[in-house]
Computed example of a mutant assay.
Amino acid sequence: MPTTNVLTSADLTELRQSALGAANPLGIAAELAEAADQGRLADPTDTGYALTLAAEIAESRAKLDAALRYADRAVDAYRTQDDSTGAFARALRARILFRVGRDDEAIDELTALRPLLTEQGDAAAYVSAALDAGGRSSTAEQWLTTAVETIMADRAASTDQPKEPKDADSAGVLFFLLQQRHRVRRDLALPHDQNDNLADRLESGLTGNTGRTVTEPTATDLLFWPRDDFDRLRSDWPALGETYGRDWDEHRARLERELTRLAGGGRTGLTVLRGSLDGLVGFAPQRGGDPTDPKIRAAYAQELTTGSSQIPWPPERNDACWCGSGNKYKKCCLPRSRG
């Protein structure tokens, strides 16, 4: 990344998609912080965004002291700007606080964000992810359940809409709450209840517009390992070849076929989750397991869904392939969908 150029909002978005796969992501985090310090952001209101990205990068590399410093600064920047979009930065800060053992502060921060669960669609994802990181999945389930019940009660009290929405569009924020609640309950091995069934019906309606139901993937299904990470993973844990592929070509082909299948069923906004072996190895002990445990890998993949590791799919045919090979998409992973 250039060290003296002004960074635009588009530059920051591009870095969000690529930074974790860079040769020196921590250097990028430091550069982002310096750009904020030196006034090298084309839009000064991007200060909180740049520092949040720096915090995410540092956290992914288990540099928690640096991550917390960046997160503190990001929260301060949003507060100075009176910017209500800083909620994700606060949730990220809470997640880091959990990881450094400051649980009470983390809970206080998330409790302050809790009202957003009934107001903002993405709040269910970042609040529950932070609670998951602190080993508080049961609390996440309770908060999400209460938020669902609140919205359902409001709908029932309304004279112009039914209590249960018939599709995801009419559900609004409730749809995202139901999705995250469903995920948390599945991770906790809780039995299906009527709201889990409603989540299934809404998801089927969203993905089955072509006349056939498309199975909703788990985050693990879209977890991608860059080549160096894949080779190390296969070397350290050969048995994972059954899960991710015998070689990197097969690994990419599996992902491309799954993404193509989902797109054919009407899914939009698809992304690949770029994993990091160092990130997984650092994450596993926090959950009391190791990288070979499917539940650990699933939790790690789920955490990536709320961070900067998402690669938009598909790229344009003549653009660089999503896998990072440097080749054009049309000559790299696009043909693998036909294998």
Rank of each mutant, 00 (worst) to 15 (best):
F176I: 00
A189P: 00
T243P: 04
E256F: 07
S325L: 09
L64W: 09
R317W: 10
L304D: 04
S204C: 07
H182W: 11
D122E: 12
E109F: 05
D104W: 07
L12G: 02
L304N: 06
K328S: 11
T13Q: 13
F224D: 05
S9A: 15
L20Q: 09
S9M: 05
R69F: 08
L12P: 00
Y78I: 03
R79L: 11
G86T: 06
S276T: 08
A284Y: 07
A157F: 05
A87W: 01
T218S: 14
T118L: 00
T111M: 10
G279E: 09
G172P: 01
Q38D: 08
T85Q: 15
Q142P: 00
A30R: 15
A253K: 13
L304F: 09
R90A: 13
R183Q: 12
G265E: 00
Y244F: 15
G39N: 04
R61H: 14
A29L: 03
R90P: 01
D83C: 03
E34A: 13
H182V: 00
G48I: 00
G172A: 07
G245N: 14
G205H: 05
L277S: 02
A23R: 13
G339N: 14
D104T: 13
T47Y: 02
I151V: 04
L240K: 12
Y244E: 10
G269M: 06
G48S: 06
Q161Y: 02
R185D: 09
L233K: 02
K330A: 10
V148R: 01
N209A: 08
P217Q: 13
V173F: 04
C333W: 09
L304K: 08
L92D: 08
E250F: 04
D293M: 04
W225Y: 12
A263Q: 11
H182M: 07
R227G: 06
L110Q: 10
D290M: 02
T3W: 11
A129V: 01
R267F: 05
D187H: 13
R261C: 02
A74N: 06
E258M: 08
F224S: 03
E203Q: 10
M1E: 10
R93E: 12
D293I: 03
L188E: 08
V75Y: 09
L92E: 12
D108A: 15
D319A: 15
D11A: 11
T159G: 14
K163H: 08
T271S: 12
A219V: 07
L270I: 05
D11G: 08
F98M: 05
R336M: 15
T118Q: 03
T210F: 14
Q81T: 03
G172D: 07
F283E: 06
E34N: 12
W313A: 05
G264K: 07
T146V: 12
L206T: 01
L97T: 06
D169C: 00
G241I: 02
G208P: 02
P315I: 05
K331T: 13
G134Y: 05
R185H: 10
R93G: 04
A124F: 03
E59I: 00
S204R: 15
L97H: 07
A89R: 02
A125D: 13
T3I: 09
R79E: 14
D247H: 10
I107W: 08
Q38W: 04
A301F: 13
A10L: 12
K63G: 01
E59S: 10
Y70F: 15
E203N: 02
V100N: 08
